[in-house]
């Protein structure tokens, strides 16, 4: 509107943009400098003690194992081809099976947790404020309890001479010895029990926000309760379902303790394979390759999570 030259009398105070942080004017760069000062130490720590070691693992996964179990730094893709079933004597299904089994266990655990966790989430959402806190705390307590203790609790409970097997036997249910433990039933029970809180918490957070008037309206319009639930309620809790499934799937695929203690030899997952290579077999390069595979499974799950929940508020971690 006005001639720009008419303001030459005004001093050009700032050529470079300065920022204000909570009332404090900062020259350019000062803001970043302070951020680096605050965030730097912790981020450096995580880098040194996690990212660098992970880089070592990735590097090692391309190395070879010497005859005495030492590492020979010669580049090879052999570890990965072993992972996909190329053994010394042709196709060897052991390793691909472990990979598939781990992913399968992850999915199965997530699905079972969803089924089992649903009533709990709805139940808690229907409670009064005070009881909600109590119920949520009750969900979190097992999660805060040592996994080893819970796992061996299941061991005690499911063992052939344990309380459950004895009672089932006296009730006339024919059950072979070791039908429950060690093996798949014990592993899956413990898995679901272990990861249930990861499912219940995000699921509950979603159920809590459900607009029930929609389902009531659907019922008013003549929908059967089940249909109303399916079309009016379920879509609303989908974010919680997805978040819960990812939160269960991710750690379940990498589980090591539960299959180790409850699975016997039959149920080896990625975690157990890694442990075996770094422990007994002393084949660190191959163990690293399996670890990288586990890492990739995790990244895939995480990517799925962020792409599905894009734009929504992150579901709080327990």
């Amino acid at each position: 509107m006005a001639d720009p030259t008419s303001h030459t009398s005004l001093k050009r105070r700032r050529r470079i943009r300065r920022t204000v942080h909570f009332g404090e004017p900062m020259p350019p760069g000062a803001h970043t400098f302070r951020a680096a000062w605050l965030c730097g130490p912790a981020l450096a720590w995580v880098t040194v003690f996690l990212l660098v070691p992970l880089a070592f693992v990735i590097a090692l996964s391309f190395a070879q194992r010497g005859d005495a179990g030492e590492v020979v730094w010669r580049f090879t893709l052999e570890n990965y081809s072993r992972l996909f079933g190329n053994g010394a004597l042709g196709f060897d299904p052991v390793q691909p099976l472990i990979l598939a089994r781990s992913i399968g266990v992850g999915f199965a655990t997530a699905l079972l947790c969803l089924l089992v966790g649903m009533p709990v989430a709805f139940f808690i959402a229907g409670l009064t404020r005070r009881w909600k806190t109590v119920a949520l705390t009750l969900v979190i307590i097992p999660f805060g309890t040592n996994l080893l203790i819970r796992t061996y609790g299941w061991q005690t409970l499911l063992s052939p001479e344990g309380w459950l097997a004895q009672n089932l036997a006296s009730a006339g249910v024919p059950l072979a010895d070791y039908a429950l433990y060690p093996g798949w039933p014990a592993v899956m029970l413990a898995m679901v029990c272990d990861y249930l809180p990861f499912m219940i918490l995000p699921l509950y957070a979603s159920v809590e926000k459900v607009d029930w008037s929609l389902s009531e309206a659907a019922e008013d319009l003549g929908a059967a309760p089940l249909r109303a639930f399916w079309h009016a309620v379920l879509p609303q809790i989908r974010p919680g379902m997805i978040a819960g499934c990812v939160l269960v799937f991710l750690p379940a695929t990498g589980q090591f303790v539960i299959p180790d203690l409850l699975g016997g030899a039959k149920v080896a997952l990625l975690g157990n394979a890694v442990q075996q290579q770094f422990g007994g077999s002393r084949d660190w390069p191959f163990g690293s390759a399996i670890a990288v595979a586990a890492l990739l499974v995790m990244l895939a799950g995480l990517w799925l999570h962020t792409s599905v929940t894009k734009g929504r508020r992150e579901v709080a971690l327990p």
Binding site: K11, R12, R13, R14, R17, T19, V20, G23, P25
Partner: peptide
């Protein structure tokens, strides 16, 4: 208030240069 800075211009509060 001093919670933001202008890109250019001047500001006095009570006759005192405030920027």
């Amino acid at each position: 208030a001093g919670l933001d800075l202008p890109d250019s211009g001047g500001l006095r509060i009570g006759g005192v240069e405030a920027l």
